[in-house]
Amino acid sequence: MTELKHYYAPTSLDQAVECLKDGDVTILAGGTDLTPQSQAGRIKFKHTLMNIRHIPQLSGITLEGDEIRIGALATITEIMEHPLVKQHLPVLVEACDHFASDQIRNAGTIGGNICNASPAGDTLIPLLVLDARVELASMPEDKLYRHSMPLSTFFVGPGKTRKSLCELVTGVRIPVPAANHVARFYKLGTRPALDISTISIGVAGCLNGGVLSQVRVAFGAVAPTPVRAEQTEQALEGKPLDAATIEKAAAIARDEVHPIDDVRASAWYRKEMIHNITKRILGHVAQA
């Protein structure tokens, strides 16, 4: 490990990706993960600490065609209060409302939440069921290169993503959901927020005459990354949301996840909750 040698606060995206070229850079956004992690010695600083907060291209929430783009620096508070998000992505607002505390929502960014890649990251579950794509920028040669990838393929392990060391996350893109789209989020815990999810569940799909299609189900805190539950999705796809379907899907969900025991809960309890809450949420969706 190299010792921290430089502090850099670029004011443009070009400067930032240029700096990232050698890959020996620690990126700082809101700092709500980085500060405690570095102070406890859980992460070591790279050669350069780069504060990305002064890069205009990373902020803002905008409607671009049929997608909503949320800049990487958008804070949780900005997201939950933004009219576009409130109108089109209420499930994301719901998740943001269960996120940490007001102070942390004011500081923490969505880019940070994505890059921190915690299996319990609260925005990640709604983003997964909303088919979000992650925008990345880098400078392979001398030119800015931007591309995106589905969030569902982005995570590889706790704190690990497919983003290379030379890449910066610039934002997320979320297709504007159709009119008959329904989505729900649930975070299990005794507090309204300021609590790491014991489990969290996101369910989304298009509801047509009681039948759910384009089903998306995602679970948090039951695997090394936030995960899509494909078997559960299949069990629901194109089916009328009746009691039998719901029970079957909930049972499949329970078998589909392989959580671990930790200080917050046992694997057994997590599986039970995946079952019970999936059932409960699907019941709510059926009534939507």
């Binding site: 700082l28 809101g30 500060t35 504060n51 102070q103 942390i104 500081a107």
Partner: peptide, 20 residues
Amino acid sequence: TIQVDGVSLNSCLMFAVDCD
């Protein structure tokens, strides 16, 4: 808790350099 640019934050979660 402190306020920075009009919003409340945890000063323990903020890098001092970021006050710039």
